[in-house]
Every structure is written in C-alpha cells, then in structure tokens.
Simulated scan of single mutants.
Amino acid sequence: MSHSPLRLVIFDVDGTLVDSQAHIVAAMDAAYGGLGMQPPPRETVLSIVGLSLPVAMAQLSPELDTEAQEALVEGYKNSFSSLRSTGAPEQMSPLYPGAREVIDALLARDDVLVGIATGKSRRGLDHLLAAHGLTGAFVTEQVADHHPSKPHPSMVLTALAETGVEARDAVMIGDTSFDMEMGRAARVRTLGVSWGYHPTETLTRAGAGAIVDRYADLPAAIERIWES
C-alpha cells in the first residue's frame, strides 16, 4: 500500500490571510507626507502589496532618485511600526473571515504542511503572528529580509527545500499576480483568492490554477488542484 505524498500549502499574508490595507495605506500616507509629498492613490498603493519595500517604492515613485526612495522605505517602516504600537494588530490587520478555521483544519492534517511566503519583514510577520496567536503554527516562514522580491521564486524554492516536499505536491495561495508568478516560476501549483488586492482577471492572466471567492471553498479547491 503506497502512502500519499507529504504536501505543502504556502500562504501569502497581506490580502490573503489578513486584511492589512488600512494599516498599509496609513503607513504609506505617512511616509510620503513625512517628505512633504502627495501619496499615491489607495488603489495604486494596494497594487504593489506583496513586493519588497525597495521594489514597491521604485514602482510607486520611479521619478525619484535612490536616496529619496530609500527615505520613503524608512518612513514607511517607521510609520508601520508606530501604527502597530498604537493600534491593536488584530484590528489593524484582521484575519479574513474563515481563515482561522481553514488554517486550523490544515494544521490538523498529518499529510499536509503549512507555510508562509510574504513580502513582510521578519519583525512584521512575528508581530502579526503573535497578535493572532499563530506563533509557531507554520512549519516554514519565508520573509522579505532573506529573499529577492516576489515574483522571484526564491521564497517558494526555500520552503520546498526546508520541508522536503516535491514541487508537484505544493500549492502557493495568494491574492496577487506576484504570488501566482512566483509559484509558477518555482513549478508549484497556484491558487488565487478573490478577496485581496489584485482583480481576479489579473490573477488569471498571471496563471492562477484556480480562484476561490471565500475561505470555505479553499480546502476543496486545494484537493482539486492536487488531483488535476
């Protein structure tokens, strides 16, 4: 009797597990305001969520020199941190409805490992997981500090290496084209979620294997992807 392979489910964080848009937009407004500049529109800011900060700032303000872009990065980090200390993290970045139940169900399975691949910093992720009582829940946690920005496949490849799971037995779940492109570049399955920061047609164009509209539909969608 052959055993089913060990499988890995990798979650993006912002826009996938947690709705951090209020926190992100407020920090971005403060970063630009601190330099006496007009911040980009909300939709533009949300379109770069998932990218590492230096890459994000270069996309938001390509006309600025490197020094000014670096000042924006520092301003954003400082604003994000101070906002986190003044507001309850679970309110600033709440879990999406149904996320906890799906994570708990996946964690309870013997044949599935659960990981994270995020554009957040190590410090930012640690704060968030602690706020939601999820410290230590994920077997592999890939953060922006140690990798090139998404959509480079480094985060997913490292997660595979750390867990020993084959690419064909892993799935990347995210809300942006960066997540889908990263997953495809690492040769893992991809699953898009419609409640995040990129429109579903963007996810489809980026190669999402399937798209779900609510967390309750995620477990069945994962099974279908592995069966295909």
Rank of each mutant, 00 (worst) to 15 (best):
A117V: 04
Q142P: 06
A105W: 14
A99P: 03
H132W: 03
L107V: 01
A88K: 11
A71G: 13
P97K: 12
V112G: 04
D111W: 12
H147S: 14
R109D: 08
L95S: 08
D65V: 03
G119K: 03
D65L: 02
L128W: 02
P153M: 07
H146A: 13
L113D: 05
V139Y: 01
D111K: 08
E63H: 09
L128P: 00
E101C: 10
V102G: 04
V143K: 00
E74T: 14
D126C: 09
L129H: 09
K120P: 00
S121W: 05
V139C: 07
P148D: 11
R109M: 05
T118N: 04
A131V: 06
A99L: 05
V102N: 05
H127E: 15
R84I: 13
P62R: 02
S154P: 12
A144T: 03
H146D: 15
R100M: 10
A117N: 06
R109I: 10
D104V: 10
E70K: 14
L125D: 03
E101F: 13
S154E: 14
K77N: 11
G133E: 12
V112Y: 06
H152L: 14
V114N: 00
Y96S: 01
S82T: 15
A108M: 11
T66A: 13
H132C: 04
S81C: 15
P89W: 10
V73S: 02
T135F: 11
G136I: 12
S121V: 07
P148A: 12
G124F: 01
L60V: 02
G115T: 00
R84E: 11
S93H: 10
A130K: 14
D126M: 05
A144L: 05
A144V: 02
Q69R: 14
Y96V: 03
H146Q: 12
Y76D: 02
L128K: 01
L134A: 09
L128R: 01
T135E: 14
R100Y: 08
D145R: 11
M155Y: 05
L128F: 05
Q69D: 09
T86M: 15
S61T: 13
D126L: 04
L125F: 06
P89C: 13
A117T: 03
A99T: 15
G124A: 03
V102P: 09
R122S: 12
L95E: 04
A131W: 03
I116A: 01
S121N: 11
P153N: 07
H127N: 12
A71R: 12
V112K: 01
V139W: 00
L113I: 10
L95C: 07
P62L: 02
P89V: 10
S82Q: 10
E67K: 15
V114F: 01
A71Y: 03
H132R: 06
K120A: 01
E63S: 11
G98C: 11
Q69T: 06
R109L: 10
L129N: 02
G75P: 06
G75W: 04
T140Y: 00
V102I: 15
L129A: 06
K77L: 14
L106F: 07
R109F: 11
E90D: 14
T86P: 10
H147Y: 12
D65S: 04
A144K: 00
A71K: 12
F138R: 00
S82I: 15
T118F: 05
D104H: 08
S93E: 11
S81A: 15
S81K: 13
Y76H: 06
H132K: 04
